[in-house]
Amino acid sequence: MNVVTVEETVLAALKSVTLGPTGPDIVSSGLVYDVVATGPVVRVLLDPDKIPDNDAEGLGEFLAPMVEALPGVERVIVKPRPKSIISSDSPKVARFVLGVHSGKGGVGKSTLSANLAVALGLRELKVGMLDADVYGPSMPTLFGLSGRAEEVNGRIEPLQAHGVKVMSLGFLLPPEKALAWRGSLIDEGLPLLLSEVAWGDLDVLVVDLPPGASDVHLALAKHAHLSGVLTVTTPGNIALIDVKRGMEMFADLAVPCLGIVENMAAIACSTCGHSIPLFGQGGGQALADETGLPLLASIAFIPDLSLTGDAGVPYVIAAPDTASSKAIAALAGQLASRIPERVLA
């Protein structure tokens, strides 16, 4: 059977567009970099370097209605192709740099990051944890660290807890201080948490990203050498919209999304055991289906575990036999297998 995909339909249509009356078509000339369809939503990715007169906007306005009229297409997004902005001046502090991201705040991203870092450490990996949530640094609380980071030989020493080297702006300023940082300050300050910190030899650096799509994310995409990001979501509708926005941002920056983790999936009543979806349900799987990315884990909400976070002992250590801890341990196993082998000198 010969099934024509939406992508093929769109590509065929785009091939009918040529550069000038006798010029090559825009697909074979490489001007159209790729066409990606997720369901009825089609992204046409252009290569800005190959667009005559740099008129990407004009070309987009011309192509969008044409593609939108094709069968199976509901919405069209014309934009530049993914482009990495990694700066070669920045040091790569670990063999594998994992960003943990969510579009929406409060989905448990930081708790998950901390537990994941500890779980990776339990697999005998050398793990660093960078708290890049500059507006709401949570790692001091989650790791039970209240000290200040000291400078030794001109480099900032990360603090250590539960087998993980941790660095957070929380170690550099008091909690009651409002961190009113303009974006411009982020561009200068954030790279220092990578280059000026004595991370030592790391297998993995887990980076806890702030929610949203901001200067912080751009700064990290530029300086942190992100190997990939995990996308964390709660199962409800509201979270999913924001999550998609974040995923789009990383796709634009050519940072691969490794998969989806659904958090706070359900909660069980402590008296009758009746389990209810706390923040909607099925969203993680729906997102996985829509984006074609794997749903790597689905983690229930266990109220007692939030106590372990407040007490500064990640639950993979405090309560290793709970379903949540096992889910995180399994996730750590999946991620560990992606870390490039250590090259022996």
Binding site: V41, R43, R75, I77, R182, G183, S184, I186, A213, S214, D215, H217, L218, I241, D242, K244, R245, G246, M247, E248, M249, A251, D252
Partner: peptide, 18 residues
């Protein structure tokens, strides 16, 4: 802004733009 932008826009807001 949700009235104005599709989620696929994947917008990164730089400081001055904000």
């Amino acid at each position: 802004i949700g009235n104005l932008l599709a989620p696929e826009a994947g917008l990164v807001w730089k400081g001055p733009l904000i």
